[in-house]
Design a protein around this nucleic acid. Structure first.
Lengths: 166, 166
DNA sequence: AAAATACGTCAACGTTGTTGACCTATCGCC
DNA sequence: GGCGATAGGTCAACAACGTTGACGTATTTT
């Protein structure tokens, strides 16, 4: 199951100085890939910086993110959502609790489950992080205009549905 | 440097069941973030699968990618491009060489430097991996139409330039 | 009372990348 | 020719992060 698809269009076994007859299409698509990388980096950079300030990592961010959107969710549910083991979740979760960003409390219906909720500080931090990302998106959309924004969504949706998107 | 921007719009300290008065803007922006994730996953999934088949990782892919686009580049240059230490580069590089995907040869002008080039097999694999990604982009662009594609680029460029894009 | 569930924790590993030290082969130059 | 700088390779110690596995505790279910 080796070479397939576009492979044929590339002359094999030679060492040309700078890809000759690749055509303009391939170049544009390569540019698309580059853009994805830089865009993602742009959106992630600031939150990461802020997180690092408090000695937190992207895992903490993920926790804050999901708990913010599903207050009262259980530890097990979060674990499933993040798709990690409970051991991997435990440490960062406890750190967040220690820093007073997240709150664990027994559920009414079942004293075994611990319900997760953001504290005021946690909510503020999460809003800052998410807000920073949203700001970048908002600026990019504003700069590109409403039509471009609509197009962006269409392409992204087409791209995303090729994976399994709910 | 704490809460700022959109943070204010979120009520702090309460635990509502499902984000109430966040407005449609925030929702759309959240959707944008989700789309980025799924789109990226979609584009990365296939190459990763193929790579795994040969016991290769994303690092190997990166090497193949850059060497394909700059044949004859030196090990040091590649190291700088990938922004890793030579020790981190050495192992995967040797594996690629062992698998006959990449070729190291002394440079004419300076026998100390080793010039990197893809072999026929390496070129084929790289083309397969990249081709797989390009196919997804091409399909998404085709499905969304040329106007949407143009818009996509505009937004992505706006987003990307907020980081440092060359 | 017994089995199952939700969570926490200790311990041993594996992966991946980093730093640091040291070695070889070359090149540039006085 | 000899010497310092450069390109590259390699060994070893370490750190971050996540995984598996094995237990322990509280609580619910049957």
């Amino acid at each position: 199951m080796a070479a397939r698809g576009l492979a044929k269009s590339t002359v094999v076994g030679t060492n040309r100085p700078s890809r000759p007859s690749d055509g303009p299409d391939t170049a544009a698509l390569g540019e698309a890939w580059r853009l994805m990388h830089y865009a993602l980096r742009a959106v992630i950079a600031e939150p990461d910086r802020i997180l690092a300030t408090r000695g937190l990592t992207r895992m903490h961010h993920r926790i804050l993110f999901f708990v913010a959107r599903a207050p009262g969710m259980s530890v097990g549910a979060l674990q499933g959502t993040l798709n990690v083991t409970k051991q991997a979740l435990n440490a960062p979760l406890r750190q967040l609790q220690t820093q007073g960003l997240i709150d664990l409390s027994k559920a009414d219906h079942d004293a075994r489950v611990r319900e997760l909720r953001l504290t005021a500080d946690g909510t503020a931090l999460e809003a800052t992080l998410t807000g920073e990302q949203y700001r970048l998106f908002a600026e990019a959309f504003a700069a590109a205009g409403p039509e471009a924004s609509k197009g962006w969504q269409r392409v992204m949706r087409a791209l995303a549905t090729q994976a399994g998107m709910p």
